[in-house]
Design a protein around this nucleic acid. Sequence first.
DNA 1: GTGCCACTTCAAGTCGACTTGAAGTCAAGG
DNA 2: CCTTGACTTCAAGTCGACTTGAAGTGGCAC
Lengths: 152, 152
Amino acid sequence: MDITEVAKRSGVPASTLRFYEEKGLISSVGRRGLRRVFDAGVLERLALVALGRSAGFSLDEIARMFTPDGRPRIDRRALAAKADELERTIRKLVAMRDGLRHAAVCPAPSHLECPTFRRLLRSAATGAIGARDRKSSSAPRRPDPAPRRRRP
Amino acid sequence: MDITEVAKRSGVPASTLRFYEEKGLISSVGRRGLRRVFDAGVLERLALVALGRSAGFSLDEIARMFTPDGRPRIDRRALAAKADELERTIRKLVAMRDGLRHAAVCPAPSHLECPTFRRLLRSAATGAIGARDRKSSSAPRRPDPAPRRRRP
DNA sequence: GTGCCACTTCAAGTCGACTTGAAGTCAAGG
DNA sequence: CCTTGACTTCAAGTCGACTTGAAGTGGCAC
């Protein structure tokens, strides 16, 4: 398979595949001229990478989850730790979701007068909730190098 | 209050307060010489900002949640929409957490042979879970301009 | 054989939320 | 009055995960 084929099959842009190779996350089986040649294994590997990303591991962490010979070396303790981390995140998000839902229907004239809202406000202020990140996970995976015209 | 006082009371670094003022998220009541002077209201304002951040709004979105005269203008539909977004995120994280917990104790010789793990893998590959973000929300709020010696 | 264009490399750019560094200002204590 | 050092501004740097652009190479259809 050439890089475009892998891109199509995996949904990962070619530029990202090169980037991942550079990072040691995937590797090609060789070259035909300059061009990379991949075998089917890269697809499973990419799935593993996607899984790791979904779980919140960084690319560097994921890279460390493969043995030098390319087989997955999965550390159960790391998984459990990440699960616990997710657990904590989930709790916060649930509190936040409930707070938002309430605020969205709360009849108080100003949100500042609503006890629920004020409670939420306090927990945010004390950092009990914790700031989340920009790229909300609802952002759908970008399909591929989308053709973008530049402005004239 | 001067900026250091606000920083201490709110836990938000002075540099961030300046940044927030520049972005229009907060404002000072005036200056004494060059120095900003804040009134107590800024603390509630900062709490509101923290709350918005916790809920996953961007700073720009938060800025739009205040009327030009500085009162909160809270859009119930935006709140409900964000709650729904959180809902979706939560679902994904729960699936991920359960998958990780299972993988952490799964007796299968290789994770690739574990049905649960493979199911997780497939959903990550199809984007059903979605990549999360770097700064895991477990990162504790940084205390303040920590005195850092530079290396010699 | 040859031209095209899909591939290649490498450097630089992007995005958001800040932080950091250098250089300047000035309120307050001595 | 003079020093001090906490404040100020403004530009640039950081971080992670990529993307983009320019310039170069070479596989393959013709």
